[in-house]
């Protein structure tokens, strides 16, 4: 499915802001792997996902998806393999376009586009059915502008868009972080459902350790641009937040002093 081989990325090379964000990240996902990613602020979690998505070229290493080496493809040309949901609900959708038009754009991800209709009647019916599954009443507002939706609705819609055409890999970057706790839980549940239903391979960054433990079949921890811990299957099921915190101290040699993480530990 997805394989990263020794990915390195330094931002602003040769300037005072030089920052080694990825320092040799390697990981191989199996089909159907649902990996949760945790780590402190600036650990390189988003950068890892952005490297896969091709937001900018990597410095070295290879990215292989479904047997294709996509390291040299620009963002829009590798989009056909990748579904994405971003942290900011505004990022994933086009606010001035209708709900159904956004879906139609997503349905054509990876297809050559021409002078055929941007959306057909048959599609509208399909989207109606699929929106019903979100259980947010969006199926009755298909011609509303996405800008009128709440953050949670937009994230749910983005999730549907990301998976409308089955992606080889689904990338979720703290996609519930900007939502209120109730909505966040709902969107997370929906993510679980969609991933299971389509047997998707997915990577989900979260700052909530208990979410990271609860979801997925595999967990990785990042620190300073490296993967410092990788656990799956039965071993992952036995994880607790305390074990993770200890693990972090042990491997990184310092306490995980991330406010958001401590906060999420206490509230869950």
């Amino acid at each position: 499915m997805l394989e990263l081989i020794n990915i390195k990325k330094t931002f602003n090379l040769g300037t005072i802001n030089e920052k080694k964000a990825l320092d040799g990240v390697s990981i191989k996902l199996d089909e159907g792997d649902f990996v949760t990613i945790i780590g402190g602020n600036g650990a390189g979690k988003s950068t890892t996902l952005n490297a896969v998505a091709g937001v900018w070229p990597t410095d070295s290493g290879s990215i292989i998806i479904g047997g294709n080496n996509i390291t040299g493809l620009p963002e829009h040309r590798r989009a056909k393999f990748i579904g994405r949901v971003f942290q900011d609900p505004m990022t994933g959708t086009a606010a001035t376009m209708e709900i159904q038009e956004n879906l139609a754009l997503a349905a054509r991800r990876g297809n050559p586009r021409g002078l055929r209709w941007g959306i057909t009647k048959k599609e509208r019916e399909e989207y109606h059915e699929q929106l019903k599954m979100l259980d947010l009443g969006l199926e009755d507002r298909m011609s509303s502008k996405v800008g009128l939706l709440s953050g949670g609705q937009r994230q749910a819609l983005t999730l549907l868009m990301a998976t409308l055409k089955k992606p080889e890999i689904l990338l979720l970057d703290e996609h519930t972080a900007a939502l209120d706790p109730k909505t966040a839980a709902k969107v997370l549940e929906l993510s679980d459902k969609i991933i299971a239903e389509h047997n998707l391979t997915a990577m989900m960054v979260t700052h909530n350790m208990s979410d990271a433990i609860k979801h997925g079949n595999r967990l990785i921890m990042m620190n300073e641009g490296r993967i410092i811990y990788d656990v799956k299957g039965e071993e992952k099921k036995k994880l607790t937040v305390d074990i993770l915190l200890k693990k972090f101290e042990e491997v990184s040699g310092k306490a995980l002093s991330n406010d958001r993480m401590l906060f999420s530990k206490e509230t869950d």
């Binding site: 963002e75 989009a79 505004m90 086009a94 606010a95 001035t96 754009l105 054509r108």
Partner: peptide, 14 residues
């Protein structure tokens, strides 16, 4: 025009 990040994520050459 509306959201170039979204457009690229949907495979559009902006």
């Amino acid at each position: 025009g509306c959201n170039s990040n979204m457009a690229r994520a949907q495979g559009i050459s902006t």
